[in-house]
Amino acid sequence: MTLAATSGKPRPQRHGAGAPARVGRPRLAWALPGFLFFALFAVVPMLYAVYLSFCGNWSGIGSPQLSGAGNWTRLFQDSSIRQATRLTVELTVLSWVFQTPVAMLIGVWAAGKQRNRAVLAALFFIPLVLSSTAISLLFKALLDPNFGLAPSIGPWIGFPDGNILGSTNGALIALVFVGGWQFMPFHTLIYQGGARAIPKSFYDAAAIDGAGRVAQFVHITLPQLRNTITTSSVLIVVGSLTSFETVFLLTQGGPGAATSTLSWVMYQNAFDDFNFGYACALGAGLVVVSTVLSLLMVRLSGFGSMRSTREGA
């Protein structure tokens, strides 16, 4: 976070940096280590998982045998998968609704050059440097119905006995909140960067035309942050779709199956039931769904064209 990036005084636009990329780009060979690493640790296991998904209910004993698409047809008939899908969608939507506005407002606020904002922004950043495990265990202790803070907090938010993690809605809200608490600083950082990239001249011009603070936010900041919103939203959506550690550590999918998200169901199938075939079908399905979703979001928001918003500025 360098404060120098937004100097207060008006300055000439640096047209050179935005010029078409005739500057020498690294050759493809430079990407080879990256490609190899990705292929070995992401693509190969993914393909193996797809292979296993056609191997019936392979339990890890003996060698897997191809046995048709049984796992895939089961995937579409399984009522617990339907419930998990619904839950995952709920979790994703709630996470987006919770994180986006808050992260955006704090991010835009933190983009200001004031020193107190810089200090506070650094403090807000702290949750991001903690591990998910630490955060989940911390909140599990805080939300403990007998020995934690839940009996004190509960009555204020509609859980008179503090049974937050033990009720169907409470557990879901807890997941959304803890996930949000953890990842909001990251999205704040993205919005801060996005807001700082908006030329100050826009605001100066708007101020001359008599636009107030709110009008400036709605008519300049929001449209200029369009690509930032897309980036942040794709990360939130894909992250929530596949989020696992918080569920694993905070609720174990419970109470009952109230927070059994798709990734938790996948884990249970693989490492509790030892049904690797079905778990792989579910995992491969998740990969397809999240890829399609993020592509759709990028396409629909026009982010795919990668045009700089600063063109014509």
Binding site: F41, A42, M46, E245, Y267, A270, F271
Partner: peptide, 11 residues
Amino acid sequence: AALALGLGAAL
């Protein structure tokens, strides 16, 4: 839990 983050990778 860490392993299960990527099922394929875990396998």
